[in-house]
Amino acid sequence: MDIDRPSDPQVSVVSSDGTMFHTTLKSILLSGTIKDMIEHIGEGGVENMGAIPLQNVDSKTLEIVIKWIEHHKDNIQPTSEEIKDKTADFIDPWDENFLEMDLDKLYNLITAANYLNIPQLLWLSTRKIAMLIKNRTPQEIRSLFNIEDDWTPQEIEAVQKENQWCEEK
């Protein structure tokens, strides 16, 4: 038994606002972006590579991402190709619960999942917003997302004219 070298070594990442987080290699490899970076360092360098700086992720969001990757580190991750074929599938109750957060956090999570290239997390978080949108009127969507109605009555009329055929009641 090789006791000196644990099979899942520790790695550190640093958020854009300078906070350092420790996690394991297996977890962090769920991020396609970091995986690419580590592969370029080469196998031997992992232990000596130092903390990985993540310029585009703040500490609050990084904490959430790490919680997710550590929970899923032993699960087989679908590729972004496989995600495309996914329909309204079964969602893990843990994930469902995990995604219970306010919209600001969710936007940041989506941006981070996109930057870090974690297809499954991106799918879960974008789908979560899609579920919020479903079956709502334009006014409801506006107040939900705090969006201004920037249509003029003339524009609305023109667009409706052009799209008469797809106006679902």
């Binding site: 899609a130 969006i147 106006e167």
Partner: peptide
């Protein structure tokens, strides 16, 4: 990313009426 989110919504008419960007 917005395209990805909207791709999961089947009936987009209501959504598309929200604002010009959408």
């Amino acid at each position: 990313i917005l395209m990805e989110i909207f791709g999961y919504v089947d009936q987009k008419w209501q959504l598309s009426m929200t604002c010009k960007t959408f």
